[in-house]
Write a protein that binds this DNA or RNA. Structure first.
Lengths: 219, 219
DNA sequence: CTCCTTTCAGAACAAAAGTTTGACACATCG
DNA sequence: CGATGTGTCAAACTTTTGTTCTGAAAGGAG
């Protein structure tokens, strides 16, 4: 009985470490768990039963998770570089930063505030080439775009009739609806208090189309 | 012939995306690849051969790696190298999932849809005990809340006059403005076509206050 | 040297999971 | 209307892989 504890710690320790190392290596390299027979070859053992015993021991030691019956189901339970960190941003989520404020009469500022950035699913906005602008003013109130809203703008050079777009008029940025009046292109505010602005290509430039809106001041 | 390209993209696209999503989800959750039969159950297919075909297609599309014969050997071949998308969610960002649709006359569904969840900064909404509801109907159009908008609701039992809240009337959920009429509490729609609803504590229950709004259908 | 314990090997077994086949439903096209 | 193709399903079939069993080699202890 006294000899039991000594031998289990001494002789097998080497092999068990080799097995563990190999499992680590395999998962690291192949991003999938090795089979028992893989480990046989990799750790220099010729018997599946031996490997089986070691895997069980490693499970008891808490180093791996070895679910009975499941194929290639070893997962490393280490604190280190495991394959599934608690939570990370899915690949289809993109972070947008607010570039500045947009209105009739205010130019775009380079991002003034770190805290004004949001995470948005790519699939929702259809592209990851987007940016954020904060609305100043009420010129689009009839389109239900309010002062303080954040607009998600998908970058594009042109637009269709009826699109709500962000545009540069001279060096001022605004959000308006694009349309035609008497065959001429105009930028229409959605507020009776403002007048349509002729869209002439010399001074005007389409920044992008409004594809989303975030509002955090509800009243 | 002309229709070929369309049909191959349309009908199977839904299912293949469902399969892909499930594989992603499974691997994320369990850190090991699902079996074909797992995917059957998870993606609503009843035949292993269908799944098999989809997996092959996904392999061809370069989205996954599917080695023939190997058990549980699907690995995601994401655009960004491996499993770790370098960037992780900052501590002050919380993920909200859409619980269902809210309107005059429709109960809350608890449908879990991957695509309908957003990441939002805690600091913006002031709390992490929030949830998401999708607006159905136009009863709050004068408050610039439209059909299809996603509302961020901060859970709370009571509210102040003037707050826009999500409330349960009987077993129907709606969003309305809370206020008083002749000393009695009412839920006010913001649309002339609807009438205020008396708020009696026997049938009505405050779910929470609307603190944010996301809109992805701009028109 | 014999007994005992530990460890490994080889084989056999059982179950899980990948693969294939054929059939049916449905739509599209000529 | 029939021909073709696609998507799905059900049921086999095959392979891989986890598990167990028995026995043999190795090394100490008495």
């Amino acid at each position: 009985m006294a000899a039991t504890s000594r031998s289990t710690e001494s002789k097998s320790a080497k092999t068990i470490e080799r097995v563990y190392k190999y499992v680590q290596k395999y998962i690291h390299e192949n991003a999938l768990s090795p089979s028992v027979r893989d480990i046989c070859a990799g750790a220099g053992l010729k018997s599946t039963s031996s490997v089986h015993a070691y895997l069980r021991k490693l499970d008891e030691m808490g180093l791996i998770e070895y679910r009975p019956g499941m194929r290639r189901a070893i997962i490393l339970k280490n604190t280190e570089g495991s394959e599934a960190p608690s939570e990370s941003i899915p690949a289809d989520v993109v972070r947008l930063t607010c570039l500045g404020k947009i209105t009739a009469g205010v130019p775009i500022y380079a991002h003034e505030d770190e805290s004004e950035s949001f995470y948005i699913n790519k699939s929702i906005i259809g592209s990851n080439d987007c940016f954020l602008l904060k609305v100043k003013g009420t010129s689009m109130i009839n389109a239900h775009i309010l002062d303080g809203d954040y607009l998600i703008i998908r970058k594009q050079d042109s637009c269709d009739e009826g699109d709500i777009i962000a545009a540069l008029i001279g060096d001022e940025a605004t959000v308006k609806r694009y349309g035609y009046l008497n065959g001429q292109p105009y930028l229409f505010p959605e507020n009776e208090l403002y007048s349509p602005i002729p869209f002439n290509t010399a001074e005007c430039k389409v920044l992008g189309k409004v594809v989303g809106l975030h509002r955090y001041s509800i009243s």
